[in-house]
Design a protein around this nucleic acid. Sequence first.
DNA 1: TATTGTTATACTCTATAACTATA
DNA 2: TATAGTTATAGAGTATAACAATA
Lengths: 165, 165
Amino acid sequence: MKQFQNEINSLSTSVQAEPAALIMDVIPLIMSYIRSEMRSRRMPGLSIPQFRSLIYLYRHEDASLSQVSEHVGLKLPSTSKMIDALVERKLVIRKTSATDRRFVKLKLSATGEAELAKARRSTETQLAEILSALTPEQQDNIIASLEELRSLFAVKSNRQANTEI
Amino acid sequence: MKQFQNEINSLSTSVQAEPAALIMDVIPLIMSYIRSEMRSRRMPGLSIPQFRSLIYLYRHEDASLSQVSEHVGLKLPSTSKMIDALVERKLVIRKTSATDRRFVKLKLSATGEAELAKARRSTETQLAEILSALTPEQQDNIIASLEELRSLFAVKSNRQANTEI
DNA sequence: TATTGTTATACTCTATAACTATA
DNA sequence: TATAGTTATAGAGTATAACAATA
């Protein structure tokens, strides 16, 4: 029983040396912040997959629905409905491909680009304000760490369909 | 228009120097991994708030429903239903407080503790395997970064109700 | 009256299955 | 036949409002 106790002792949510437990603890916390920011100040009524779709379409004009689906990690029907909402909201333009009429071509509307830019400014301002409590060295550390984590988990998440956010 | 372009140029999801944009990019990615791991190998049918509740109850025996609600960031009715499921699943024991019968006293069952320990081993194994691609220095960097981020966002998320994961 | 928690109800997001249109 | 996408339907998870029980 003593052994068992030791085994689960590092479940502590306040003092952790294990990167794994730390990740399980901190990532949800930050995710929580991102989501609530998104929902309130930023782009009310926009889900995180929708926000990520906009960003993706900013970088990939005329992407297909399947490409967006792949990127945000939703199944095709869910992606279709999600994009529906963006089209209705005039943030995204959906056309049928001329060369292969089975494909959909998606791109940001002018409004979509503007909203996205606004959202980005707002996001960055909020997050930057929070991060300003750190020294430049700490911030550089965080940037390096996140870059490393991204390279690791980008690979992982390609292996299976993911709900992303 | 050139100015506008510059303004949103750092939306790039592949090369970012801004911590804020990086956070928006990487945290959802890792979150995606955590969630899909949770859903598949680990504790099938257990939501992340449920998992976090178990961890919280491991550290805070006889916590009230409100305390759990506060910790996981769900509203009280949602928390009530979520705990319902854990009680039905025999992972959590729910009693009425003897001293103030309005309060609920929640704690892990023996099964709950065992499942949690198992889940933790599984989680740590998977994450540790991923992180093993990094040098010890990089890992230390990540630990330090996450600790810093936690202290920042722990404060933030106390200011408002959060959905956490 | 104030506080703790539950019940009733509705909404959002997601998935699977079945379908349509196009190649 | 195979592929891209949509529609139909259902389930999970959450919120708000109204309520019950206790202090």
